[in-house]
Amino acid sequence: MNTPNKLTIARIIMIPFFVAFLMYDITGSADKWIALAIFVIASLTDLLDGYLARKYHLVTNFGKFMDPLADKLLVCSALICFTSTGQLPAWITIIIIAREFIISGFRLIAADNGIVIAASYWGKFKTVSQMIMIILMIMNIQNTVFQGAITVFVVIAVALTVISLVDYILKNKNVLSMQD
């Protein structure tokens, strides 16, 4: 197993620890900061594994499948936690998770037809905005400016989620016609 794939596996392994520190009182007031550190490290492994895979030609079928899955698991875990604590309305979590299921379905249909659908810039912007939103929500500093920033990034993340979905469907609508 190559280094990028090991980083992807490490990201998946970090998720339960992230959730535990985010949701449970393990160390007291340090919990959210530990959760934040785990989330940031996990997010950085996403950048690093992609960089290494492309630079050193270490792209594998395992990585093509597991890397986006690891990202989805990390982001969706955070969103579900925020919904369960009341920090994030369920409809936002549902929109973001539904988008991920729809795109995954498209990718499976495309792969079944021998087509690889690359991530678009809209999808990359969506991921970055979601990760910034999650980082801010973990920090959850109680002042008007910070809470305003969280609201702005929630709006940006939802907007980019919808925009990237529409862009993805429009660019790849031919995949659906292959199923007739």
Rank of each mutant, 00 (worst) to 15 (best):
residue 2 N to C: 12
residue 2 N to W: 05
residue 3 T to K: 12
residue 4 P to S: 13
residue 4 P to I: 12
residue 5 N to I: 06
residue 6 K to W: 08
residue 10 A to R: 01
residue 11 R to N: 11
residue 12 I to V: 10
residue 14 M to L: 15
residue 16 P to I: 13
residue 18 F to R: 01
residue 21 F to A: 09
residue 22 L to M: 14
residue 25 D to M: 09
residue 26 I to G: 11
residue 33 W to R: 09
residue 37 A to R: 09
residue 38 I to K: 03
residue 39 F to K: 02
residue 39 F to C: 10
residue 40 V to Q: 09
residue 41 I to M: 15
residue 42 A to Q: 06
residue 43 S to M: 11
residue 45 T to M: 05
residue 47 L to D: 10
residue 47 L to M: 15
residue 47 L to H: 15
residue 50 G to P: 08
residue 50 G to S: 14
residue 51 Y to F: 15
residue 52 L to F: 13
residue 53 A to T: 12
residue 54 R to C: 07
residue 56 Y to T: 12
residue 57 H to M: 08
residue 60 T to K: 02
residue 63 G to H: 07
residue 65 F to Y: 07
residue 66 M to Y: 04
residue 67 D to L: 10
residue 69 L to Q: 03
residue 70 A to N: 04
residue 71 D to W: 13
residue 71 D to M: 07
residue 72 K to A: 08
residue 72 K to F: 14
residue 72 K to W: 01
residue 74 L to N: 01
residue 81 C to M: 12
residue 82 F to E: 10
residue 82 F to T: 12
residue 84 S to T: 14
residue 87 Q to P: 07
residue 87 Q to S: 12
residue 87 Q to V: 14
residue 89 P to H: 12
residue 90 A to W: 11
residue 90 A to E: 11
residue 93 T to V: 14
residue 95 I to L: 14
residue 95 I to H: 03
residue 100 E to R: 06
residue 102 I to L: 06
residue 102 I to N: 01
residue 104 S to G: 13
residue 105 G to L: 05
residue 107 R to L: 05
residue 107 R to S: 02
residue 107 R to K: 06
residue 108 L to H: 02
residue 108 L to S: 11
residue 110 A to T: 02
residue 110 A to H: 06
residue 111 A to P: 00
residue 113 N to L: 04
residue 113 N to P: 01
residue 113 N to F: 08
residue 115 I to H: 01
residue 116 V to W: 08
residue 118 A to Y: 08
residue 118 A to K: 07
residue 123 G to H: 05
residue 123 G to R: 00
residue 123 G to P: 00
residue 125 F to Y: 14
residue 127 T to L: 08
residue 127 T to C: 10
residue 128 V to A: 15
residue 130 Q to M: 10
residue 130 Q to K: 06
residue 131 M to H: 09
residue 132 I to K: 00
residue 133 M to L: 09
residue 134 I to Q: 00
residue 135 I to H: 05
residue 136 L to V: 00
residue 139 M to C: 04
residue 140 N to I: 08
residue 140 N to Q: 13
residue 141 I to R: 03
residue 142 Q to P: 03
residue 144 T to M: 07
residue 150 I to M: 01
residue 150 I to L: 01
residue 151 T to E: 06
residue 153 F to V: 00
residue 154 V to Y: 04
residue 156 I to P: 00
residue 159 A to P: 02
residue 162 V to W: 03
residue 163 I to E: 05
residue 165 L to R: 00
residue 165 L to D: 05
residue 165 L to V: 10
residue 169 I to Q: 03
residue 171 K to V: 07
residue 171 K to C: 06
residue 174 N to W: 11
residue 174 N to T: 14
residue 175 V to I: 13
residue 175 V to L: 08
residue 177 S to R: 08
residue 178 M to I: 05
